[in-house]
């Protein structure tokens, strides 16, 4: 968490220096051909850290809905979403990133939450309001982990 705060502060500082009035702390990204081609943090994620975020029930909690054979040591994989076995062969990095950041940009009706979005939400609990489910760094770590699922 301290790392995240530092990152956010750094970002805010840059925005202030640029004379931007907005308090928007979200990393900016471009969607190109239903994908986000570039890293939210400007660097590659850490797959090992991403696996932890992926499993953690208070962070990614991805196994609530998805199945991953490589994680069969973890009990109870949900059956709401598709298996993620081989997901890296079906989608490129940019597509995986958009899927994690905001799956609704791909399928507006999906049940999958947007892990890096704060706008357009309704009645968010106060302690989560204005916050993303994952930090930009955690998104990149999860994307790096997903890239290992071949």
């Amino acid at each position: 968490m301290p790392k995240t705060k530092t990152l956010v502060s750094a970002f805010a500082a840059i925005l202030l220096m640029a004379g931007t009035a907005s308090a928007d702390e979200l990393a900016k990204y471009d969607v190109v051909d239903m994908a986000i081609p570039t890293s939210l943090t400007g660097k590659a994620g850490d797959a090992a850290a991403g696996e932890k975020v992926f499993i953690n029930r208070k962070l990614g909690n991805c196994l609530a809905c998805h199945q991953v054979t490589a994680l069969k040591a973890q009990p109870f994989h949900g059956l709401i979403g598709p298996t993620l076995d081989g997901v890296a062969e079906r989608y490129n990095e940019g597509q995986l990133r958009l899927q994690v950041v905001n799956a609704k940009a791909i399928n507006p009706d999906t049940i999958m939450p947007a892990f890096y979005r704060t706008e357009g939400l309704h009645r968010v609990l106060k302690k989560f309001d204005g916050k993303t489910m994952l930090s930009a760094e955690q998104v990149e770590d999860v994307v790096a982990y997903l890239k290992t699922l071949k």
Binding site: I80, I111, P113, A114, L121, H122, F128, M133
Partner: peptide, 15 residues
């Protein structure tokens, strides 16, 4: 609704 942006129907009707 909520940060997870889900409706009742998505769990209890669709799933």
């Amino acid at each position: 609704r909520g940060q997870l942006d889900m409706s009742c129907s998505q769990c209890h009707e669709d799933n």
